[in-house]
Design a protein around this nucleic acid. Structure first.
Lengths: 258, 258
DNA sequence: ATTCAATTTCCGCATTTTGGAATTGATGCG
DNA sequence: CGCATCAATTCCAAAATGCGGAAATTGAAT
C-alpha cells in the first residue's frame, strides 16, 4: 500500500507538468484501475496529488512542496550553508549548489544563482542524479566508507552510461577527490560546462554533503579556477567548524509570508 | 495506513532539524509503538525519513526534496514565472514570491532574493500559511468562487488569531483585492514588513496562484509602491498571456548537475 | 444516436496491517 | 559493578483493511 503510493508519486513526478491519466499510471505500475483510483483519491485528499484543471489528469500537489520545504531545512545544513553559497555566487558570479545524499542518489537541496544564467543546463532544487554522476555527487560518494562505495558503484553501474560516463571514469574521479579533497570537472554532463566541488565533512562524521560551483568552461581559466577552489575551501572549512558546535537545533523563527 | 503515514510525515515536519524519537511520534499521533516503528521503517526504506546521525531520532529525508522539486515544477507555473520574478527582484531589489493554493493553505513555490535580505523574516520555498493570511494568500483566496471563499473562511477562521488577524480584517482585504485586482499590505505579519500581491488568473480559469513582493516598509514610499505595482501588473499580464497558449508542456531538458 | 474507452463504484475474499506482549538494547542510578 | 528503567524492536494471532474483478457511469468521438 505505502510502497504503491510511493511508486505512484514517483511515476507522477516523471510525468511532469501535463500530468498523467489514471489508466497510464495503472499500466506503468502494474496495478488495477480500481487500486490506482483509490490511491489517487487518498493522495488527493491530502493534497499530495491534484487534478490538472479539475479534469481527469493527475499531477503532484502543492502539499508536497510544503513538506519538502521542511525536509530541506530539516537537515539544518541548508540554513548553515546558504550564506556561504550566497557569497560564492556573489563573488564569482557563478551558480552554486548544495547537494546531499539520498540512498543511491544525490539531491540538490539548495542553489544560488550567479550573474551568468545557466538555468536550463543544470539541476534545480530537488534535482536528482545517481551517486557518482556530477561533481558534487562524486565528492559525496568519495567520502563514504570503502564498502559503501563499492555497494553504491555496483548498484549504480548500469545507470552511468545514460549520463555519458563509464564506471572506470567514475572510479577515477572518486580517486581524485580522495587525493585532493576536491574535484574539478570539465564537460561535466554537458559539453562546455565545468564544475568544482568539495565534500562537507562534519567533524567526527562521514561526508554528508557537498557544495559545487558550475560554470561555462570558457569563463574561467586555470588560475581563476584555482582561486575559486581556494575560496570554496575556506567557506567549507567555516561551515564544518560551525557544525562542530551543534549550534541551535531549534526551529527557525516563524516569519512573515510570501 | 496511508493516512497515518501522511500524519507521521507532517509530524516530522513540525519536529525540524533535530528530529524526533519514535515514542514521541507515537504519542503525538495516538499510534502504538509497533505501528509507528513499522511506518518509519517503510518510509526510511524509501528515503522519505532518515535517522539523525544514524541514531534513534528521525527526520524527513532528502527523497522528499527530490519529489517536491518535481512537484514545484509540476504546475508548470514556476518555470513560466521565474523570469518574471527574477526581473522584479532585480529591478526593485526586493524579494519576490510565487504562491499557489494547497487545500486550505497557501504554499510558497518559488522565491527570488532581492538585494535587501529579509531571509529570516519571510517564508522560504515550501513555506505554508492559511489561505487568507499573507498578501499573496489573500490574493489567491479572493479569486475563488464565492461559495468556496466562505467555505475556506469558516474552516480557517480559528487559525487567523495566531497570525494576528481577525476574520473581519481578512474579509476586508479580500474585498480590496476584488476591487483593485491587487493588494498592498503594511505590517503584514511582521511589524515594518510590507507586501504587494497580485493574483494570477489563467484565461478561462479561476485564480490559481499569486505573485507577491515583500519589502521593509520604510524602503518604499507611496509613489515607489505604485510604480512597483504597475510593474507587477505588466509582468502578470505577460504571464497570463503565455498561459493562454498552452505552450510546451513537455519536460524540461534533462540538464547538467549541481 | 451509437460505440468505445476510460473512470468510478461496488463487494466478497484474503492478504496485510494492527497493537499487546515479550525481547533486546541502551542509559543512568544506587 | 550490577541493577533498574525507559525506549526501540520483534513476534504473533485476530481482524480490519485493501485488493481487484465486474458492473455501472461518464463523456468523447464517430
Amino acid at each position: 500500500m505505502l510502497d504503491r503510493a510511493v511508486g505512484l508519486l514517483r511515476q507522477l513526478g516523471e510525468a511532469g507538468a501535463g500530468g498523467q491519466q489514471l489508466s497510464r499510471l495503472a499500466d506503468a505500475l502494474g496495478l488495477s484501475a480500481s487500486t490506482t483510483h483509490r490511491l489517487l483519491a487518498a493522495l488527493e485528499h491530502h493534497g499530495w496529488v491534484e487534478r490538472v484543471d479539475g479534469g481527469k489528469r493527475h499531477r503532484l500537489g502543492a502539499a508536497l512542496v510544503a513538506l519538502a520545504g521542511q525536509a530541506a531545512d530539516g537537515t539544518g545544513l541548508r540554513r548553515i550553508c546558504r550564506p556561504a553559497l550566497a557569497r560564492l555566487s556573489g563573488e564569482s558570479g557563478e551558480t552554486t549548489f548544495l547537494i546531499v545524499r539520498s540512498g543511491l542518489n544525490a539531491v540538490v537541496v539548495d542553489r544560488q544563482e550567479g550573474d551568468y544564467v545557466i538555468e536550463s543546463l543544470t539541476q534545480g532544487v530537488g534535482g536528482l542524479m545517481p551517486l557518482g554522476i556530477g561533481a558534487g555527487s562524486v565528492a559525496i560518494l568519495a567520502g563514504q566508507p570503502l564498502a559503501e562505495i563499492e555497494a553504491v558503484l555496483s548498484a549504480n553501474a548500469g545507470r552511468y552510461a545514460q549520463f555519458g560516463s563509464s564506471l572506470e571514469q567514475v572510479r577515477h574521479r572518486l580517486a581524485r577527490v580522495q587525493a585532493d579533497g576536491a574535484l574539478m570537472l570539465d564537460d561535466s554532463l554537458i559539453a562546455g560546462l565545468a564544475a568544482i566541488s568539495l565534500p562537507i565533512r562534519p567533524p567526527g562524521h562521514a561526508v554528508t554533503a557537498a557544495i559545487a560551483v558550475n560554470f561555462i568552461a570558457s569563463r574561467l581559466d586555470a588560475e581563476a579556477r584555482q582561486a575559486l577552489l581556494e575560496r570554496m575551501r575556506r567557506e567549507v572549512a567555516a561551515v564544518e567548524a560551525s557544525l562542530a558546535v551543534p549550534a541551535t537545533l531549534s526551529r527557525p523563527p516563524r516569519g512573515g509570508e510570501g
